[in-house]
């Protein structure tokens, strides 16, 4: 069953069709990889769905409700969360605070200015639990700006995960980290995603990561969808291999 559907989604930047009449779906409980060369429109598509950009045309349906013109806040409430390509954290707050703030927000407690945050033990317990799941409990009291790049990537996902989304967009979760760190990051993220029954859409350039961890792959090129299928179907798709992947992944 489709969790998210975009119908003829369009975004222009001047004369450039960054996203050109894209019909895109994400099903429930799947890990979907969104691939394509730089400028293919992957991040723009995620920005449109998450509410960072306003579309110039088309429709976004999430769980059958039209969220095309909803605010970012409304989409988060509906169950859409995201991480960012360039890690976006609250660097002067601790890792624990980053997650706890998200939980306060999710629980609608963030507007409370008459009670000490520290007194809400349920929130802090959950924040510790989230960090533990992501293997970051040892960094709970460390400023987010001071942890390693790999840990920052995980924390970025953990913050989005703490919103308890139904659909999680992960924009290049392994970019900027060493090859050695990629597999542990993806193992952690995908196991949490699968164990909690949420859907994840991962934008990724590393084809080893894409083919190892995704259930389905959508390939984009010049603002349009080039192909959509299982990893095996994409691997056998000649247009994709010649346009995007090259020969290495087709071995």
């Amino acid at each position: 069953m489709s969790l998210l559907v975009t119908k003829d989604l369009v975004k222009w930047f001047g004369d450039t069709h960054a996203v050109d009449h894209v019909n895109f779906t994400v099903k429930e409980n799947e890990v979907l990889a969104l691939i394509g060369s730089n400028g293919a429109g992957k991040t723009t598509l995620v920005n449109l769905i998450s509410g960072l950009f306003r579309p110039d045309g088309g429709q976004i349906l999430f769980r059958d409700a039209d969220v095309t013109h909803q605010s970012v806040h409304g989409r988060i409430k509906a169950g859409i969360a995201r991480s960012f390509q360039l890690v976006n954290l609250f660097d002067q707050l601790t890792a624990l605070d980053n997650v706890a703030l998200t939980i306060f927000s999710r629980e609608g407690k963030i507007a409370n200015l008459a009670a000490l945050a520290a007194s809400d033990s349920a929130v802090w317990d959950e924040a510790h639990d989230v960090l533990r799941r992501f293997g970051l409990d040892a960094k709970a009291r460390t400023l987010a700006g001071g942890v390693s790049q790999g840990e920052r990537k995980l924390l970025d996902v953990a913050v989005a995960f703490a919103l308890r989304p139904k659909l999680l967009f992960l924009d290049e979760p392994t970019s900027g980290v060493s090859t050695r760190e990629k597999a542990p990051i993806m193992d952690t993220v995908t196991s949490i995603v699968r164990s909690t029954g949420i859907s994840a859409t991962i934008i990724e350039h590393d084809m080893d990561v894409v083919f190892s961890y995704s259930d389905r792959i959508v390939a984009m090129h010049q603002g349009t969808i080039l192909a959509d299928g299982t990893p095996d179907e994409i691997r056998r798709n000649e247009t994709v291999t010649t346009t995007l992947i090259g020969t290495r992944e087709t071995r």
Binding site: F84, L89, S105, I110, A117
Partner: peptide, 23 residues
């Protein structure tokens, strides 16, 4: 030191991310 105070610090540190955690 309230959740609201944390939200302000989040806005100070990273406005875009703050918006994407629901602030």
């Amino acid at each position: 030191n309230s959740p609201f105070g944390m939200a302000l610090q989040a806005i100070r540190d990273n406005e875009t991310r703050a918006e994407f955690v629901g602030v």
